[in-house]
Design a binder for these strands. Sequence first.
RNA 1: GGGCUCAUAGCUCAGUUGGUUAGAGCGUUGCGUUGACAUCGCAAAGGCCAGAGGUUCAAGUCCUCUUGGGCCCACCA
Length: 937
Amino acid sequence: MNEIPPRYNPKDAEDKWYAYWESKNLFAAGANPAKKPFCIVIPPPNVTGILHMGHALNNTIQDILIRYNRLKGQEALWMPGTDHAGIATQNVVEKTLAREGKRRQDLGREAFVERVWNWKEQYGSTIIRQLKKLGASCDWQRTRFTMDADYSAAVTEVFVRLYDKGLIYRGSYIINWCPRCQTALSDEEAAHRQLNSNLYYLRYPLVDSPDHIVVATTRPETMLGDTAVAVNPKDKRYKKLIGKDLNLPLVNRKIKIIADSMVDPKFGTGCVKVTPAHDPNDYLMGKKHGLEFINVMNPDGSMNEAAGNYKGLDRFAAREVILEDLRQKGLLEKIDPHVLSVGHCYRCHTIVEPYLSKQWFVRMKPLAHPAIAAVKKGEITFYPARWKKVYLNWMENIQDWCISRQIWWGHRLPVYYCRACQKQASESMVNGQWSIDKETTDAQGVIVSQVKPEKCPGCGSTDIYQDEDVLDTWFSSWLWPFATFYWPNFRGQGTGDRGQGSLNESREEKDLKYFYPTSTLVTAPEIIFFWVARMIMAGFEFMGGIPFKDVYIHGTVRDTEGKKMSKSLGNIIDPLEIISDYGTDALRFSLISITAQGQDVFLSKERFEQGRNFANKIWNASRFILMNIEPKFVPRDLCVFFAKEELSLINRWILSRFYSVLRDVEKSLAAYRFNEAATMLYTFFWHEFCDWYLELIKQDIKHPHNQLVMYKILEKYIRALHPFMPFITEEIWQRLRECVEGDKLEGVKVSGCQSVKVSECQSVMEQAWPHIQDQIIDKKAEKDAQAIFETITLIRNLRSSLDIAPDQKVNVSIFPRLKSKRALLEQNERIFKNMAKLDSLMLLPVNTRPPATISAVNADFDVYLHFSGLLDAGEERRKISLRIAEIKKYLLSKEQRLKNQEFVNKAPKEIVEKELAGLAEYKLTLSRLEKMQHELQ
RNA sequence: GGGCUCAUAGCUCAGUUGGUUAGAGCGUUGCGUUGACAUCGCAAAGGCCAGAGGUUCAAGUCCUCUUGGGCCCACCA
């Protein structure tokens, strides 16, 4: 046999097997009526994306689900792709332009977009390559991009349909404006953060009186756009001032004092300056009271003409100058420190400005309705369940969605205008149909059409131009679960090769029918509003039903301080570096085993050592087995073998343990408790299979029973571990296959529904997840073996307390307290001798301490270790009385419990019986200990 | 203002519907390296489960409050 190195080298295995899987097309999936579908759509990473720990966690979870369900015999499709990420990508390309000293305006729109495409072609697949390094088993041939022609067509069609239904409208409102990106943002894109700021108290003089009133504001620069001051109508302090005129300082504009119940008399001075063009509340008041809307800022955040002397100053510079000017005029009453939460652009972190502008919106309430009902009814389940509440709370208070962006990279709105008649047109048109009443506020003269109209349907002019804006990136992402299947304009005709159905049905259409709704969506909590909620709404609106059944929300990856890992904080741990240092499997396993359901993950580099060490352990155990498999070994069918042969306790024990663990792993995976599944697999392999089983059979490794069982457990275990650690399991599986080549391996090939010999499988990926064999689970064997192991540990403990060298043999006498346990010792004498390094094991006929021994007891046995030298009787007595005190404590608690009539009456029978059995056991142990102590007197 | 979440061993965290003596990894202590593995083995030490009440035969687990972290939402001038 080939030499196997004593250390697992991930680099050797990873690229090799990934290429192998791809070359065998093992990730591909398609409509297959013979199987049940299992589908996950990837949360499409930004094309500008670089793999970070959040991706690593997110995609590891998805890959585990996909690989697990694939092994379980489902048609498992993991749909991959990337997101064009409008603002983010535009920013990246603008930065590269800046290095050449250019701005996008220097190139012009067309050339700039061309440039972004070039950038995408060159760098856009970085994240895909990195996902492959992670082992992601996506069906890469299906890789989609949200700006692909087909996908864009879906986006356009959705816009037109919603407009046609009256669910999209254009209007002037206060939106979140990023002065750096110079675009509108949705409410979700303006991330609120606490800021230590000030509350400025300004004096506004009354026109007909020497008095003034005081307003409190956090943004004094907006006072230039004030067109009123509002007080609460019930506020006695100001009642008589309502309707009076004020002289707005610095601007010398006459503004009125108005009354509005929106004003909170308890905040500040109870007087609010009203700036309808720069604040959402003021906007509402402005509408209500017919105030003037004065915009004092340019799109870049500098002050405009309306700001008079302050024109050209940046908003924050203007703030300082205005405050100083007010101070000099004695109009700045005071400044109080004030904490407030301020919106920041989620792409560039600039403070957003509430800004009045004309934008496009989606009316959300009608869309939300079925999406709320679906989650309430349990059609969609959130894991962990608490996110359901968060989702519902948001959905029930949903606001209209601002979808237009003033950038260049993205899907352009399918909205056109006629230069010749736009001013006159009073109607809007959708796809050639004029409609009059759209309930839209500001849509006159609008032509909404999937393709650019050749001439104006109103006046016949050909002077038609398209709206400059593009759509919010999420306006394309929300279609991801079905637009990735080429909805609604399926391409090919009758090309489906696996499914049945109409000949005219394209392969894509069949796939969509087969895989939709998808199975599970795996994502992070911060995406629930951006994406999850909107996908559910889009699912109902366009597909008539839910887009996925389960939503698994995992935690956020943080550093050891609890801070979110981010490049700007400089606290990232690069997954690729971990892969390079420890291997992909180590990265995956470590990540998954520390991610309790939905809890945030606090990461340090050391955490990955556990995964690396585990991989190495698996490697060496496999190496040991491969080195010890007999050349003529035939891997017979385990179940047949088990039924026919009389197996030793140890073999029955490990087989039972394997299937017990497997059952628990399945349960945990079904409940999305990945860490639990990983930990169970880890503990079983390391601490049961390696520490005990392999050590136990070492002496007799050529025995055919041991040969078969060790081989079978390893081979099955490898299959069960594969979803978690795909590379090392493939490497070992291939070596096992090689080692028993020519023989019929047990198992069922996954593809197709026919049973196929494993020897025909070319990868562990084609194998089936091990089938649980209930008849092999043997709780009695597990308990007996446990008793033996505990006793061996007890003897080792005694040896250790006497500093007996590990290789020095000793003699032990044991008294079994119950006759029924005697056979355990007799039949497994060899095990004791090997594992505890015994010269002899004597079974005591009577319970009397042999001379020159130290003792210990457990639930079943009294153990005496013979040694040469003098017994320190005092020390021995001390040990025993400690133990007696301990046992008495337990005994007492049990006695009290059992004395309690209510416990006996109300507790379930099994619990009471357990307590009774425990009581008897402790009594027996106690009497033994007391006798021992007596003998020592 | 509303909601969520966390507090368990020196550190980082598990602990499913309440049920014997609360677990893991790392770290610590002692012993051990000619054949699977020192990325290892054997043995050990280490916990009033944040605090206070309550429900229950039974609470780390359920309820209420308190203290101290973290997060999210809201039209906090």
